[in-house]
């Protein structure tokens, strides 16, 4: 098994546990913003899409990459904007 893969598995496992611990503490009050924020963060897939659309190795990969950039940029932009809009509404008396 390649070393990079092992590191990847460790990273995945630790990040999952960390995610559990951090997210368990999020108040139910904010579960909707939580979902839209994690969704925006996982739109980090945009970096894989950018590489594919930018390198232009084949026509197919350029096409798929461009579509993927579009889809993930929609989430990056829309996700952060709507999360912030929601959170701005939560006010104490």
């Amino acid at each position: 098994m390649p070393a990079g893969l092992m590191t990847g598995l460790y990273v995945f496992m630790l990040a999952t546990f960390l995610g559990f611990e951090v997210i368990r503490r999020v108040s139910p009050l904010l579960h909707t913003p939580l979902m839209s924020l994690t969704n925006a963060i996982s739109a980090i897939a945009v970096i894989g899409s950018l590489v594919m659309a930018g390198e232009q190795r084949t026509g197919l990969s350029t096409l798929l990459g461009t579509l993927a950039v579009t889809a993930s940029m929609t989430n990056v932009v829309g996700g952060f904007l709507i999360t912030d809009r929601m959170l701005r509404m939560f006010k104490r008396k």
Partner: peptide
């Protein structure tokens, strides 16, 4: 990244932002 040309990246970023912005601001 060794970007061959930015043309398709720009297309994707502009399109995605054009869909995402109204979804984030006015939904």
């Amino acid at each position: 990244t060794h970007v061959a040309s930015y043309q398709w990246i720009v297309v994707g970023v502009v399109l995605g932002s054009a869909i995402g912005t109204p979804m984030g601001l006015f939904m």
